[in-house]
Design a protein around this nucleic acid. Structure first.
Ligand SMILES: [Mn+2]
Ligand SMILES: [Mn+2]
Ligand SMILES: [Zn+2]
Ligand SMILES: [Zn+2]
Lengths: 143, 143
DNA sequence: CGCCTATTGAAAAACTTTTACAATAAGGAA
DNA sequence: TTCCTTATTGTAAAAGTTTTTCAATAGGCG
């Protein structure tokens, strides 16, 4: 389902800031911080406020329209999310984030950990970091 | 190796704030934020500053003496770290963090993801969340 | 013990996120 | 289309977090 329909069905309005934030996130391959989103939109002539960016990001995350990713440097980035369970892999060179499917991804490990710790596991946080295909090629060329 | 020897060998001094922060972290089972560490130490009569807590945590992390964990609510906590590759599982009830061994833990999944995305994976972020044995028992009793 | 300088604490600055509230605009109804 | 209701916005201020600066202090070696 399209994000605008989802918003509407959930009882929220399709406001200008919401459109702008979603459009910006959809236009980039790299996770963006709240401030970066705000600054880019302003640079494009948009009139929204930083407060609205924060509010919009919070809403979109709560609806599962976007995901938070932890950047290696410590900041929090946001990226559009597809439906269902998945995780992200981040390129350490160009900072692109790519989704990968995550169903059953950790079943074996979770089983091990539950035995080992006697915890009951109900959730997890998983991200990979590495080098994307494009950046691998660039390294080869320069070598 | 004991953390004080490690600090010394790396050319750092064993200062009062460093002792106090490490002692506090070693005394608790739950990850503590910089501010929480500061406030607890002050409550105990320690004279250190919050700035020193930040500086100490940064140093200890860089030396691998402690680890950062992402709390579900969004804050960053710190816990003493044992040597070697490992991850943490956090109890959603009592907030305890428990290490589990992590060598080869994701080898199979990484292989899949590399094929699927063509990334070259070099690092990962992994945490589990669940309920610890103690808190499981408490639920049973009250039921 | 005494020196050297790594480390600290205080204060300010910088940066990030949240709150309050009046003005605005989204979208359903007429 | 216009009107009405109220969700949403923007501004400003507050609150919260982390970093920087620099003079004073104290850790540890000679
Ligand atoms: Mn998963
Ligand atoms: Mn691992
Ligand atoms: Zn790349
Ligand atoms: Zn527990």
């Amino acid at each position: 389902m399209d994000w605008q329909k989802l918003l509407t069905q959930a009882g929220f309005r399709i406001s200008k800031p919401r459109k702008q934030v979603m459009q910006l996130l959809e236009s980039t391959q790299t996770p963006q911080t709240a401030l970066a989103i705000y600054q880019q939109l302003r640079a494009q002539g948009a009139r929204l406020s930083l407060v609205s960016v924060y509010r919009t990001l919070e809403l979109f995350v709560s609806l599962g329209l976007i995901s938070m990713v932890y950047e290696p440097e410590g900041s929090l980035g946001y990226v559009p999310a597809s439906a269902g369970h998945h995780h992200y892999i981040l390129c350490q060179v160009c900072h692109r984030a790519v989704e990968f499917a995550g169903t059953e991804d950790l079943a074996g490990l979770i089983y091990q950990v539950e035995n080992q710790t006697q915890f009951l596991v109900s959730d997890h946080l998983l991200q990979f970091f590495g080098v994307c295909p494009k950046c691998q090629n660039k390294s080869k060329e320069s070598a």
